[in-house]
């Protein structure tokens, strides 16, 4: 709804400035862009769907305790990247992981990894729209970051208890 409103406002502004042909040209650009991203979009959706059949992130929780060290942070990062869907799917899983013994460093790594490199967002939006080259480069650059943040989070002097 928000995008629709912005889109209509932008179309109206463009119409007033440059007239109807400019709006038509912009729509044609959008269509060309769609044709260009369609193959990536299909492949991305298929890969995301196949991965959902193959893995379940919650099963990894037992390796994410406070004593798990870098290995636990790496597992949390992997689990985060493999978590499909938006926040309504990810944050309930955070509670499941906390209940299964994941410590705050692992939870920080998990949330950051999901937010940065969640495979669904990556495959369905970023790869098709911004191009696989950019998406792969950005993913590789940010891949170790959740682990580093989780390591720092374990050492921050802020008391926190997981919600029951």
């Amino acid at each position: 709804m928000v995008i629709a409103a912005i889109g209509i406002a932008a179309a109206a502004a463009l119409w007033r400035r440059d007239g109807a042909p400019a709006v038509g040209a912009a729509l044609y650009h959008a269509w060309e862009l769609f044709l260009f991203i369609a193959p990536s979009l299909l492949a991305g959706l298929l890969l995301a769907a196949a991965l959902r059949q193959l893995v379940s992130p919650g099963a990894l929780a037992r390796w994410m305790g406070a004593e798990s060290g870098w290995f636990g942070l790496a597992v949390a990062t992997l689990a985060g990247a493999l978590t499909p869907g938006g926040p309504m799917a990810a944050f309930p899983l955070v509670l499941v992981l906390a209940g299964a013994g994941a410590d705050r460093g692992a939870l920080v790594a998990y949330i950051l990894s999901w937010a940065l490199n969640g495979f669904q967002k990556l495959l369905v939006y970023e790869m098709p729209l911004l191009g696989p080259d950019f998406a792969i480069m950005r993913t590789l650059v940010t891949l170790p970051m959740p682990m580093i943040a989780g390591y720092i989070a374990r050492r921050l002097p802020i008391a926190w208890e997981p919600p029951k």
Partner: peptide
């Protein structure tokens, strides 16, 4: 799952891509 994903994504792209194109012109 792929089909359902496509079904959900297409209307979003149908709105989002023209928006991006309009903004890029503006």
């Amino acid at each position: 799952d792929t089909g359902q994903g496509l079904w959900k994504i297409l209307p979003i792209f149908a709105v989002a891509l023209p928006m991006a194109a309009f903004l890029a012109e503006l």
